[in-house]
Design a protein around this nucleic acid. Structure first.
Lengths: 191, 191
DNA sequence: CTAAACGGAATGAACGTTCATTCCTATTTG
DNA sequence: CAAATAGGAATGAACGTTCATTCCGTTTAG
């Protein structure tokens, strides 16, 4: 197994276990077992568990962005772009439940709170597509004049909630329902 | 200190610590310290930590319900009732950040998932006000014909998200913004 | 005086991390 | 070309710490 493969094996094992059982339900020894490496080997690739957890999140972000930006046309009307992004995000979550569960674990932990604090209060460079879309929506008077965080809440709040419900098996989201849900989110934010 | 007082002290201490640092950042010894009791004493009131965590959640539910139902008039139009419940809930969260943080910790943990599974798949007897409101809204054709879980997601998703943003200090929700946010949620679900 | 309540030290399981050792591959040497 | 050597990668037992829970001597209440 090459060096990169091994890093990937460890990352995959950690993602699976953490997504399934949370940070505290995924001891390093268990991650090592599932990755097929020795416990100490993990520390050749990740300085410690905190670093591992944060790097997994960066990896995940880098997988999501290209996916939802695929087919995104900045010239189209705002509504259409919003519907595209929302549906693409929802589809990604449904198609990659482990990524979604990990994302949720991360967000609802001190890691995620600190991360978000940096993003929102610092010079935010991430979530640019959504940010730009919302800012454009406000200046063009097609969206309600809410602070950005509220527009985020009105959009992502429901999307994350329905993704969670789908993945936990409380509902089955097929393509029609996805579109309708994202449209309902649009109803919440548009003027 | 009376027996009931002591139970309450333990519950309060546990709520504070868990709300602030999560389940794993609130060891029993620390809870005992803050409650001003011995570590062993906790086990006279709660069988173990799991039971403590679950009972805290039941206590919390019983505090929330009366609060948001205060001033709720079942005879009023659906929209008005929804706005009342949404705003009352948001106000409760903002006014009781510890309760809110605890609720979030609980929901995003195996405890909460299991709890929700029972609620949704079993013969649901909780969240009755909201459930009835949504069912009435659908039959009266004032709400979109979505499955209940989606209506819940469209309503609570944003509310929980903005409450979190307020409590973490990312935004300041004053009365005007609360009303506008809940109205935006209504826009998402009404026909 | 007795029985229940209490406190906090003791216990053992579980965890993240370390490190002395082994393994593997590539390079050097004869 | 084969054998010897070197050195980074990998290993997993061991360590120190933390935690939930138990245990038992002490205090309190009736």
């Amino acid at each position: 197994m090459s060096k990169l493969d091994k890093r990937d094996e460890i990352a995959r094992a950690a993602l699976e276990l953490i997504a399934g059982h949370g940070f505290h339900g995924a001891p390093m020894a268990m991650i090592a077992d599932r990755a097929g490496v020795g416990a100490g080997t993990i520390y050749r690739y990740f300085e410690n568990k905190d670093v591992l957890i944060n790097e997994l999140y960066r990896d995940l972000e880098e997988r999501i962005y290209p996916t939802i930006l695929d087919g995104y046309v900045p010239e189209k009307p705002i509504r259409e772009r919003f519907l595209h992004l929302g549906a693409a995000l929802l589809r990604y979550f449904i198609g990659n439940p482990l990524d979604f569960r990990y994302l949720e674990q991360f967000h609802n932990s001190p890691y995620g709170v600190e991360y978000r604090r940096d993003k929102i209060l610092g010079e935010n460079e991430g979530c640019d597509v959504f940010r730009e879309l919302f800012e454009e929506g406000i200046t063009q008077q097609v969206m309600k004049e809410f602070p950005l965080v509220i527009l985020f809440a009105l959009s992502f709040g429901p999307l994350l909630a329905v993704a969670r419900d789908h993945i936990l098996g409380f509902i089955t989201l097929e393509e029609m329902l996805i579109a309708q849900t994202v449209e309902a989110c649009w109803d919440a934010i548009h003027k």
